[in-house]
Design a protein around this nucleic acid. Structure first.
Length: 848
RNA sequence: GCCCGGGUGGCGAAAUUGGCAGACGCAAGGGACUUAAAAUCCCUCGGGGGCAACCCCAUGCGGGUUCGAUUCCCGCCCCGGGCACCA
């Protein structure tokens, strides 16, 4: 037997070095004829090193890219490091080191680990978001938005954690309103001046493009949800005895007849004007309470206070009281609502507590509704499950003892000019809005949940915002030729707790001069880490270019990205910001994608996005606290990178994730061992393809087709099993062919790239790199089908016989053949089938 | 509460448009080789019945449509993930 034992350590080291020397992964971006841009979410280089979750994500993208390369594309597949941000900074604080010291070592470690995995990265084009050569251009991006009026400074409410001593982002606030890092500490709302990006200007476009962009459905849904488009109406309510009007937003203008009070957000600008004097103290007290209340978005018991003012319901003419309550948010709609207790569970709850009237305005279509549409009666959910219960619930709603927000028909909804009674919800909405619009009392209105992106961070580890203030406090953009505004070196990078960033404590950095020579003070906040990652895929094409952020010709040639693969946890922030940044840069005249862009919107950065699934470890999610985090190094050492790659892609459907089980890895290594022996030890005569059995030849063509299709749809697990099946069939045959040997290696190569190179150059004695010269084989459609197929014959749907029939046999022939079968005749026992269903290529079903 | 996924052997999982349920792999059992073990190779492997040819049952639960349902429809249960006072 053989001196050719498969030793992955030797094979992988050998070819990794060879690829480096021969620049196999490098792409000549300017010269490439058939550009294909494969992107994966670049990692944050943690001190712990590469996580198996990263490896899973990257391998899936790498398989796709390598397969495309075999198909003849010039695949550009870069990687970089997302090293700015609060994670790095917090970790540095924890171990009492400076982030600037830690990052280079982490990046070096990550680079080694990534190389070890055999990923097809162009190592000549990496980015590190913390290097001045990169963040110079991040600051440039800010300036483009600033000049286009898409960046502005404003004072808004932000989250402030007293224990962190700094402002934190929405995503760092737990759902119970406590700080992510300080579990027991309630986050406060504070008003602070911050820089914002006008993402809301693009809300409609960001939302509408979801109708056609080719993204994972779950990602699109999450993002659509976040953008939160809703259609409704704005309606004016005249304040009784005063000149002011209160404008509200509602998605249910059809319920206006049931509006029995109004609510303003506590910080609504009209409150002070309309409140009666004797209520001022109570209002101030409530506002103070609301101010230190849990962070926005946390449900709690409804509270509020009356302002003493009344407003006129425009449909009934009745005066209704105006309250303030913190269940109404200034940041959404107009910051004011009309309250319809019978049609909204929040309003119902509030009305019940403060004894406000409930006017039923809808007769519910109770069969279609859900129990959660009801409040105010015990066990509505249980009641709703029974037909009897449904009528009890309906009666409660009609009596005003419960509320209903589902479908139904309007009742009690008419005035002298407008009659909605009996109309279904959609029609009543339209009629009510049209009537209001005709009277000048309201209008149709589309609203979004999305809010402008606050990018200021009172932190150290990020790119400084390139703004200088004059003595009057007016902001001035730092001229582009003065970029980068370097992040100053300081030992003291910790937040002070006074709400100002650490940079504010470095006067020699803060004090500067304006372009016109006047003294100025630098903005001391740094930019959100999400800005670094919102444009990195544009920089990849021009790494090393110190004259521009990106070369317009290369952008036109390579963008948009052909496929982007990453985790769905970035559906709403990163993936939304990237789309926004492209639209904003385009609007600023600073970005123009080429003919590859979709004509429906030339600023969408990703032609295709696919979310990979989550890896779990023996039944539970991997986490440090559970101690079941997999360090890929150990596995690569033990099994080799190709085996680990194969295993990760095999363990479950890639877009669903799966269970990482140590015991299962060995199967992939055995497979490679067998393949290795098959290529190196021979034993099987190699003959012309035409001399092989038809079955084997057909299987080969079928596999070539299936693997191509499966990889295209990221069904990696079934692609691998198809190759295994082909190999099992091939090695069992008396002879094989060069065609089959080359097909098998081309099919499996994206999963086991080192192994493929070894087979190609050593066993098959091909000149040059597999990855530079090999092509994915063409399949012959006519060779993907056998001449004869096995069909089943059923009697009353039960399989009773299997027959080998010509593939092209039609229904009539099949019926004849089935009835000719001895076994079937015996089973029929003289009975004549009442009905015969014959499906060519599949079955015959005889009904007796 | 709302929105997504998912539920198939001992385990990870397959199954074009509705058409032979369990491909591929792991584990397990038996055998070959070996002084022995490892490695490798061969066989068995959803459950029940039968000497056997074969037969019956089975894709979370309950209904339905269909010649035929893992697949489609209605109603539930359980698990995982995300969002959560958005008017």
């Amino acid at each position: 037997m053989s001196e050719h034992v498969y030793d992955p350590v030797v094979v992988e080291r050998k070819w990794q070095a060879w690829w480096d020397t021969h620049r196999t992964n490098a792409v000549d971006l300017a010269a490439a004829r058939n550009p294909f841009y494969v992107l994966m979410m670049f990692p944050y280089p943690s001190a712990e090193g590469l996580h198996v979750g990263n490896v899973y994500a990257f391998t899936g993208a790498d398989v796709y890219g390598r397969h495309r390369r075999l198909r003849g594309y010039d695949v550009f597949q870069p990687i970089g490091f997302d090293a700015f941000g609060i994670h790095s900074e917090n970790f540095a604080m924890k171990i009492n080191r400076h982030p600037a010291e830690l990052i280079p070592a982490n990046v070096a470690n990550f680079t080694n680990q990534l190389r070890m995995m055999g990923l097809m990265f162009d190592w000549e084009r990496t980015v590190d978001t913390t290097s001045p050569e990169y963040y110079k251009w991040t600051q440039w991006v800010f300036l483009q938005l600033y000049k286009a009026g898409l960046a502005y400074r404003d004072e808004k409410e932000v989250n402030f954690c007293p224990d962190c001593g700094t402002v934190i982002s929405d995503e760092q606030v737990n759902t119970d309103g406590t700080c992510e890092r300080h579990g027991g500490t309630m986050v406060q709302r504070r008003r602070m001046p911050c820089w914002f990006f006008r993402i809301t200007e693009f809300a409609e476009r960001l939302s509408n493009n979801h109708e056609w962009i080719d993204w994972s459905e779950k990602t699109k849904l999450a993002q659509l949800n976040w953008i939160g488009r809703s259609e409704g109406a704005e309606v004016d309510f005249q304040v009784q005895g005063r000149p002011e009007k209160i404008r509200v937003y509602t998605t249910r203008p059809d319920t206006l007849f049931g509006a029995t009070y109004m609510v303003l957000a506590p910080d609504h600008p009209l409150v002070d004007a309309i409140a009666s004097p004797e209520k001022q103290d109570e209002i101030s007290a409530y506002r103070r309470g609301a101010g230190v209340s849990p962070a926005e978005g946390v449900p709690k018991e409804k509270t509020g206070v009356p302002t003493g003012a009344f407003a006129i319901n425009p449909l009934t003419g009745n005066p209704i009281p105006v309250y303030i309550a913190d269940y109404v948010l200034m940041g959404y709609g107009t910051g004011a609502i009309m309250a319809v207790p019978s049609g909204d569970h929040r309003d119902f709850e509030f009305a019940a507590k403060y004894g406000l009237p409930v006017i039923p305005i809808i007769d519910p279509e109770i069969e279609k509704g859900k129990a959660e549409d009801t409040t105010g009666i015990a066990d509505a959910a249980e009641l709703m499950k029974t037909p009897d219960g449904r009528s009890i619930v309906r009666q409660a709603i009609l009596d005003g003892r419960a509320c209903w927000s589902g479908d139904g028909r309007a009742i009690n909804s008419a005035n002298a000019e407008l009659d909605l009674n009996g109309k279904p919800v959609a029609e009543a909405k339209r009629l009510a809005t049209e009537w209001l619009a005709a009277k000048g009392l309201g209008e149709f209105k589309t609203t979004f949940r999305l809010r402008d992106w606050g990018i200021s961070r009172q932190r150290y580890w990020g790119p400084p915002i390139p703004i200088v203030y004059d003595e009057q406090g007016n902001p001035h953009a730092v001229p582009e030729d003065q970029l980068p505004v370097l992040l100053p070196e300081t030992k003291d990078f910790r937040p002070k707790g006074d709400g100002r960033g650490p940079l504010a404590a470095i006067p020699e950095w803060v004090n500067t001069t304006l372009p016109d020579g006047r003294p100025g003070r630098r903005e001391t906040d740094v930019m959100d880490n999400f800005l670094d990652s919102a444009w990195y895929y544009l920089r990849y094409v021009s790494t090393g270019d110190d004259k521009q952020a990106y070369d317009p010709d290369l952008i036109a040639k390579w963008l948009p990205v052909d496929i982007y693969i990453g985790g769905n946890e970035h559906a709403v922030l990163h993936l939304l910001y990237t789309r926004f940044i492209c639209m904003a840069l385009e609007k600023a005249g600073a970005l123009k994608m080429g003919p590859r862009a979709d004509a429906r919107d030339t600023a969408e950065p990703f032609t295709k996005f696919r979310a990979h699934g989550l890896l779990i470890k023996e039944g539970s999610k991997m986490s440090k606290s559970k101690g079941n985090v997999v360090n890929p190094d150990i596995y690569v050492e033990k099994w080799g990178a190709d085996t680990v790659r194969l295993y990760l892609m095999f363990l479950g459907p890639y877009q669903q994730g799966g269970d990482f089980r140590d015991d299962d890895i060995v199967g992939m290594r055995r497979f490679l061992n067998r393949l290795h022996a098959w290529y190196f030890d021979g034993g099987q005569p190699i003959v012309a393809d035409g001399e092989l059995a038809k079955e084997l030849r057909v299987k080969t063509h079928q596999t070539i087709k299936k693997v191509r299709d499966d990889i295209d749809s990221l069904s990696y697990n079934t692609a691998i099993s198809a190759v295994m099946e082909l190999h099992n069939a091939a090695k069992a045959a008396p002879a094989t062919s060069e065609f089959i040997r080359e097909a098998v290696i081309a099919c499996i190569a994206p999963f086991a790239p080192h192994f493929a190179e070894e087979v190609w150059q050593v066993a098959l004695r091909k000149p040059g790199s597999f990855w530079a010269t090999a092509r994915y084989p063409e399949f012959d459609e006519s060779m993907t089908k056998l001449d004869e197929v096995e069909i089943v014959v059923q009697i009353n749907g039960k399989v009773r016989e299997k027959l080998l029939v010509p593939r092209t046999a039609d229904a009539a022939t099949l019926e004849k053949l089935a009835l000719a079968s001895e076994k079937i005749q015996k089973e029929l026992d003289g009975r004549a089938p009442k009905k015969v269903i014959a499906v060519p290529g599949r079955l015959v079903n005889l009904i007796v």
